[in-house]
Amino acid sequence: MRTTQHDQTAASEPPIASRRHHLYNILAWLCFGLGFVGMLVPLMPTTVFWICATWLWLRSRPHRVRFLIEHPRFGESIRRFLESGEICRTGKTAAVVGMAGSLAIWIALATPGWPFILLVGGILALVALWILTRPEGPRPAPAPTQMAVTLDTDAWARAKPPANPPG
């Protein structure tokens, strides 16, 4: 029976660290699944859950992180947040609007009492404040606002006839 590097590492770890790695792995899969659901369900985030999954997998199964940081759509956001704590302006806007919308929907559907509304609203406000204070990173270069288009009508007159005319 062959032993892998992971098996050898797990065998040399103390039992508490091994249990923590298993817990992190389970939580990472849960976050990954929630992020996947977020790709399909409006107002549910994907990137936030995948950032959490990446963080957890970096501490339990680092080889699983490559898929997320190389993802064509979400990889750059995950990488920038993990490397320098940056959140793009679009991500900040989406997060804050999503939290406010979720709070409004929760209040409308669940009709909680004022103490719960203030507690949840306060927590969401603190999270929104934290998100808004994260750096945004360099702005992308603006696209040119004007483009010069010219039409060379003389080119039609200079066009050569086909070398082998049909017929």
Rank of each mutant, 00 (worst) to 15 (best):
T4D: 14
T4W: 09
H6Q: 15
T9D: 15
S12L: 06
E13T: 03
E13Q: 13
I16R: 02
I16G: 01
A17D: 06
S18L: 12
R19M: 03
H21C: 05
H22T: 08
Y24V: 03
N25I: 02
L27G: 00
A28L: 10
G33S: 10
L34K: 07
G35Y: 02
V37A: 11
G38K: 01
P42K: 07
L43S: 05
M44R: 14
P45G: 06
P45Q: 11
T46W: 00
T46F: 00
V48P: 02
W50M: 06
W50H: 08
A53L: 08
T54L: 07
W55E: 13
W55N: 11
W55R: 14
L56E: 05
R59E: 13
R59G: 13
H63D: 15
H63W: 12
R64S: 13
R64W: 10
R64M: 12
F67A: 14
L68T: 02
I69G: 02
E70Y: 13
F74V: 04
F81R: 01
S84E: 09
E86Q: 04
C88Y: 00
K92A: 04
T93M: 13
A94C: 09
A94I: 04
A100I: 07
A100F: 07
G101D: 11
S102I: 08
S102A: 15
S102Y: 10
S102Q: 11
L103H: 06
A104I: 15
I105G: 12
A110H: 10
T111H: 05
P112M: 11
G113M: 01
P115F: 11
P115V: 12
L119D: 05
L119P: 05
V120A: 09
G122K: 08
G122T: 06
I123W: 06
L124N: 03
L124E: 00
L126M: 14
V127W: 02
I131S: 00
L132G: 01
T133H: 13
P135C: 00
E136L: 07
E136M: 10
G137D: 01
G137M: 01
R139F: 10
R139E: 15
P140D: 13
A141H: 08
A141G: 03
A141K: 10
T145F: 15
Q146H: 13
Q146R: 14
A148Q: 14
V149F: 08
L151D: 09
L151M: 15
D152L: 05
D152G: 02
T153F: 08
D154W: 03
D154P: 00
A155K: 14
A155H: 11
R158D: 10
P161N: 11
P161T: 04
P162L: 12
A163E: 15
